[in-house]
């Protein structure tokens, strides 16, 4: 095939592709801000997506006993599902224990995950205040914040997790 022909084919291709883009069905329906707020579960490490509300570990203890203890155990250890506490300084050993306290790089992930998924059998049952409180309680049990530290959308992203710098991006 001559160069001349290739040129023509390329031009035709561009025309066809451009034409196709115009021909896309374009059937998406605009979504209003209220709906977006309702379906948005994503909390970013910088705190983007965290709602209003607050709580402390002191208040979170009771919520934990009621909604979490059965599966995650007294003090977040030793029940049928994941341990949420402990394992500090174990990651480089022959018995690494990955928990919220020893492994998770961002405290925002606790709020994000508990809001979307926990308690397992009734996600959505907790108010934002309760989620902040139980998040504070897990941080407290792991020795990361004090019992009376107020956790809210401003303070949570500032909490420094012990393994914050333990992750290397390979993508």
């Amino acid at each position: 095939m001559s160069m001349h022909n290739i040129g023509i084919i390329i031009i035709l291709n561009i025309l066809v592709t451009a034409g196709l883009a115009d021909e896309l069905p374009d059937l998406g329906v605009p979504v209003d801000a209220e709906t977006l707020a309702a379906i948005d579960f994503t909390v970013l490490p910088n705190g983007d997506g965290l709602p209003d509300g607050s709580g402390t570990a002191a208040g979170g203890a009771a919520i934990y006993q009621l909604h979490c203890l059965a599966c995650h155990g007294e003090g977040g250890i030793g029940s049928v599902n994941d341990s949420l506490v402990g394992g500090h300084d174990s990651l480089a050993t022959q018995r690494p224990q990955k928990t919220v306290g020893s492994y998770w790089p961002y405290a925002t992930t606790i709020f994000d995950y508990v809001r979307r998924a926990m308690p397992l059998q009734a996600p959505g049952a907790l108010s934002n205040d309760e989620i902040y409180a139980v998040t504070a309680y897990l941080l407290f049990l792991n020795g990361i914040v004090g019992e009376d530290k107020e956790i809210n959308s401003r303070t949570l992203p500032l909490v420094e997790m012990p393994n914050r710098d333990g992750f290397v991006w390979v993508y």
């Binding site: 910088n46 990651l91 492994y103 961002y106 992930t109 994000d112 992750f167 290397v168 390979v170 993508y171």
Partner: peptide, 29 residues
């Protein structure tokens, strides 16, 4: 949701990250 950074969700940090012998972890393998 289109964003400017990863969410660091439970499944991409707590779970599907690859712990290394030195205790660091590879993220996004």
């Amino acid at each position: 949701k289109v964003v400017d950074q990863p969410a660091m969700s439970k499944d991409e940090t707590s779970k599907y990250s690859d712990l290394q012998p030195d205790g660091s972890s590879q993220l996004f393998t």
